[in-house]
Every structure is written in structure tokens, then in C-alpha cells.
């Protein structure tokens, strides 16, 4: 009798967990998509049934996740080189590139069709265009071709509030366009501020970031120019149906601080920046996140303020107020 010993070793380090598939959808980007789409949906005139609204938000987020998965499939070679992205599921070897592609295409189809069925065809078409724009125009074409990649690619991130608005109204309006422009013009200064203190990563991956192709002095000037160009759109939104005095006041203050930060970045030399560890660039980058969050928060606040009389009337009709 022979003693058979099968020495089977299986490296399960590379076996994907459920969380790896969630990571493919870029949950942090999705959270921004959910927030801005929700604002677009709430501030739009009219209302969806709560379940329709919930479905709209879920499928807009899923569409964003699908484009994230397609991005991770296509960019696995770049992600492998960059320190910040080398731990992602595809470059780390936990998820096969083909799996990421399949997940991306499947979720794209599901999210577009379901958003169309839950709301309307234009919202579904806009979501499809957003996924196409991010996956094909940005990821496959512009990202490796031009240092203006994030300027045009930023449009993909700017669509969600417009989709939220269209999901309710069925049409595109000036308010939806201004919300789009707010994110579109905000993206370049936000990312270039990041690129200034994360220089080595993009350089290693040969991604033509403006800092690599045109130098850091030009990038500093671009941050200032785009910040100046952003301000009219941010303020203009205050004069439409989604704005108001509270929004305008907050927007004025936020734009003043952002402009001051962009000015400070433009005035600095590399020596000064290196001396204090890019303190100003890091501060402006962090502030830019608050800038966008507070602008959209102000849209929400204005919507709540303008609807207060209607809510009070609604509550009074049920004699709820008599309790107080």
C-alpha cells in the first residue's frame, strides 16, 4: 500500500473578497456622485415618488461605479506603477482585468436601463453618455494623450447633479447647466493642487499631467486662471431658482477664500513650496473639497428655505401644528 501525500498549496492571498469588487466601483467617488446627484434631484422643481428617487440615486451611483470598474480595467498598467493605486484589486492581482471589464459593462447596462425605467429616457441617456465619457473619452483617450486630460475629463464628474435634475424634470435647464459648470470648472484647480504635491506618482506612470509636461510654474498659473473662470458660474447660480441670498453670501465668501488660495499658489516658487512641505497647496486642496460640498449644501438649504411655507401649510392641513 502506498502512502500518497498530496502537497497542494494554494495561495489564497490573491483570492478576491467581496470588498474587492466593491473597491472596483470606487466608493469614494461614488459618495460624491450620490451627494451631488441627490442635490440635483432635491432642488429640481417637482418631485419623484420616494422610491423612484431612491432608485434614481442608486442607479446613478451604480453608473458611476461601472465607469470606475471600466477605468480600473483599462488603467491597470498605470495603476501598477503608481504608489497610490498599486494596491487596487486589479494591479494587486486579486481581481482579473477581464472580470473588472465584465463587471463594468454589466453594471453600465443595468444602471442605464434601470434609471430610464425608474425616471425617464433623457436621464438614462445622460447616464450612458457620462459612463462613455469617463470610460472612453477620459480613460482610454485623453488621460494618456494630453495634459488637459482632467479639464475635459472633469465633465464626467460634473454630470451627476444634472442627471438628478433631469430625472425629476425630464429636461435640461440653466440651473442644471450651472451645477454642471460649477463642478466642471472646479475640477482642474482641485486636481492640479493635488498634482503639485503628488508629483512623483504621475511622473512615474508617464501620465501627461500638466506638472510634468509644462512645468510647475505653468500649473500654478493654470490653477489661478481656472479659479477665476470658476467664480462667475458659482455666483450666477445664486441668481437662478436654486440660489438665493443665503447661497450668494456663502458663495461670495467661499470664492474669496478660494481665489486668495489660488493667488497664493501662483505667487509661490518651488523653493518656497518645498521649504514648507507644500503647506499652501495642501491647504487649498483641502479647502477645494469644502468649497464644493458647501456650495451644494447651500443649494439644499435654499431649497429647504423656499419650501418651508409649503411644508407648514401641509402640516397645518393635518392639524399637526395644534399639538404645539
Amino acid at each position: 500500500m502506498t502512502d500518497i501525500r498530496a502537497d497542494i498549496s494554494y495561495s489564497d492571498e490573491k483570492e478576491a473578497r467581496f470588498s474587492d469588487y466593491v473597491a472596483l466601483l470606487k466608493p469614494r467617488v461614488m459618495s460624491l456622485v450620490v451627494f451631488t446627484a441627490l442635490v440635483g434631484l432635491i432642488v429640481a422643481p417637482g418631485a419623484l415618488h420616494p422610491i423612484e428617487a431612491l432608485a434614481a440615486i442608486i442607479f446613478i451611483a451604480l453608473g458611476g461605479g461601472a465607469s470606475g470598474a471600466l477605468n480600473m480595467w483599462w488603467d491597470a498598467d498605470i495603476d501598477r506603477v503608481m504608489k497610490r493605486t498599486s494596491g487596487r484589486p486589479v494591479p494587486a492581482g486579486r481581481v482579473a482585468a477581464g472580470e473588472a471589464m465584465a463587471l463594468g459593462f454589466a453594471l453600465s447596462g443595468i444602471s442605464v436601463i434601470m434609471l430610464w425605467l425608474a425616471t425617464n429616457a433623457l436621464a438614462g441617456a445622460l447616464l450612458a453618455f457620462t459612463i462613455f465619457f469617463y470610460a472612453v473619452i477620459y480613460t482610454m483617450w485623453l488621460k494618456r494623450a494630453t495634459p488637459q486630460n482632467i479639464v475635459i475629463g472633469g465633465a464626467a464628474g460634473a454630470f451627476p447633479p444634472m442627471i438628478g435634475w433631469v430625472a425629476v424634470t425630464g429636461s435640461i435647464s440653466i440651473e442644471a447647466c450651472l451645477m454642471f459648470m460649477l463642478i466642471f470648472m472646479w475640477t482642474p484647480p482641485h486636481f492640479w493642487a493635488l498634482a503639485l504635491f503628488m508629483k512623483s506618482d504621475y511622473h512615474k506612470a508617464n501620465v501627461p499631467m500638466l506638472t510634468v509636461t509644462h512645468g510647475r510654474k505653468v500649473t500654478r498659473a493654470h490653477i489661478l486662471v481656472y479659479t477665476v473662470a470658476l467664480i462667475p458660474f458659482a455666483l450666477a447660480a445664486g441668481f437662478t431658482s436654486i440660489g438665493g441670498p443665503a447661497y450668494l453670501l456663502l458663495s461670495l465668501a467661499l470664492n474669496a477664500v478660494f481665489l486668495q488660495g489660488a493667488w497664493a499658489i501662483w505667487r509661490r516658487t518651488e523653493l518656497q513650496a518645498e521649504a514648507d512641505g507644500y503647506a499652501v497647496e495642501k491647504r487649498v486642496f483641502r479647502f477645494s473639497l469644502a468649497y464644493l460640498f458647501l456650495h451644494f449644501g447651500a443649494f439644499l438649504a435654499e431649497a429647504a428655505l423656499s419650501r418651508l411655507p409649503a411644508y407648514a401649510e401641509f402640516a397645518a392641513s393635518f392639524k399637526i401644528l395644534e399639538l404645539f
Partner: peptide
Amino acid sequence: ELHKRRSGRNVGLALVLVAFIVLVFGLTIA
């Protein structure tokens, strides 16, 4: 340990599918 991982993936997928069914049912009612 491998079985635990796979089980986690299966449970996760099951929950996603159940959530999808509930959402489509809710949408239908709405």
C-alpha cells in the same frame, strides 16, 4: 480560510440580488 472568503462573496452577492429584487418590486408598486 479560502472557504470563508468565498462564502463571504456569496453572501454579499445574495444580499445585492435581494436588495435589487426589493427595489424593483418597490418601483413597480410606486
